[in-house]
Amino acid sequence: MKIVVFEATEWERQACSSLAPHHVVECLAGPLAGDSADRYTNAEAITTFIRSDLSAAVLRRMPKLRLIATRSTGFDHIDLAYCRQAAITVCNVPDYGDHTVAEHVFALLLALSRHVVEAVGRTRRGDFSQGGLRGFDLAGKTLGVVGAGRIGQRVIAIGKGFGMEAIAFDAHPDPIAAKQLGFRFASLDELLAAADVITLHLPGGEATRQLIGEAEFARMKPGAVLINTSRGGVMDSEALVRALSSGRLAGAGLDVVAEEGALGEEAEIFRTETAVPVERMRALLADHALLSQPNVIVTPHIAYDTEEAVARIIETTLGNIAAFETGSPQNVVN
């Protein structure tokens, strides 16, 4: 097959070289977009990360495409309806780092609870004053987990180690997991009102788009902390800015924001031929405001990014390609 690897790091290039004896493989550092699709109309299989444009408008330009192997668990960035129509198989990486992402949740939470970023900044300037740096204990606090799948359950287990009480909301509650880990399920409203720390572990897509908005922030316990390592689109960025500015929330730790792609390359907005919706521009402005808030920590979508996790991602992706080639595709999401 002609295989194109988009968003490839040097390490991924080396790993994908194992496909070369049996396939024609090309690796690109950039994401898939309209212009790159036109250059690879002969591609039969592609593997991408989440910044690639996998809309019908782009995929239609690759008429020979038969396989998309996304190097992610989420697949809300792929037009699955078009892929079904065009007989394109879509595979993901369902399990590569539950504990990896969960550990980053607590990296963000501890950095917020102990004012680590501000404290380090001071000492590097030779300032060893302690004013304004008093933090809070995690022990005894209530941890609210929105989305109690594999990652959410791992977060609960780690939280228990800190002495936190856990409650969870999930569209499909798992009573066996609740019993084993010692937490209870609650409605979203009850969770928001009771939790000292709220952490989001939701898939992207229309079903969860801006699930946490103005009304939800208003229900949160005053002084709560919000952590989001799932998808930026599950929360309303403007409403989050207001909740932080008003003091409703004490802080937020974000590994994702709604317009993270545009933040990285804002000039792209002005290169598009179509007008950018006002809602998207407002979200971009809100994300900028979050970056400058002193009680907000933003990391560049790195919750998944450890040596061990990325090794599992590429191993599974190569396995997905090999399985498709043999006629027995695995980890199929469409």
Rank of each mutant, 00 (worst) to 15 (best):
H172E: 06
G213L: 05
L226G: 00
P222K: 00
G144E: 07
A224M: 03
S17K: 13
P277K: 01
K160N: 13
D170P: 01
I227D: 01
L109I: 06
V101C: 03
S292E: 15
A303F: 02
G152S: 01
C16W: 07
A194S: 13
I50S: 13
A258N: 13
S292C: 14
E259T: 15
P277V: 03
G204L: 01
V93K: 08
A43N: 01
F185P: 08
R134E: 14
A311Q: 15
R125P: 02
I314C: 03
V333E: 01
G30M: 11
V278K: 15
R124K: 15
E268H: 11
R282K: 14
V117Q: 14
V332L: 07
P294Q: 03
H201Q: 04
R114V: 10
V58E: 00
I167G: 08
C91P: 05
T70S: 12
I68L: 07
L32Q: 03
L112F: 01
R248E: 06
G34F: 11
I313W: 03
I297G: 00
P300W: 05
V90S: 04
W11C: 07
L318W: 11
V225T: 14
S55L: 02
T326G: 04
A323T: 04
H201F: 10
E10M: 07
S55E: 04
N334C: 06
G140M: 11
G247E: 11
G233H: 05
A252K: 00
P21F: 02
L112P: 10
P175Y: 02
A168R: 01
A258Y: 14
E216V: 09
V257F: 03
P203T: 06
G144F: 10
R66Y: 12
V310G: 01
L211M: 14
L67C: 10
G140N: 12
V257H: 02
E308L: 12
P63Q: 05
G131N: 13
I167V: 15
M62D: 00
C83N: 01
R61F: 06
L202P: 03
F49P: 09
L112V: 04
I3T: 13
E279N: 08
L188Q: 03
G223W: 01
T199P: 09
S129I: 09
V257W: 02
T272E: 13
V24I: 12
H201C: 04
R122G: 06
S113A: 10
D287S: 13
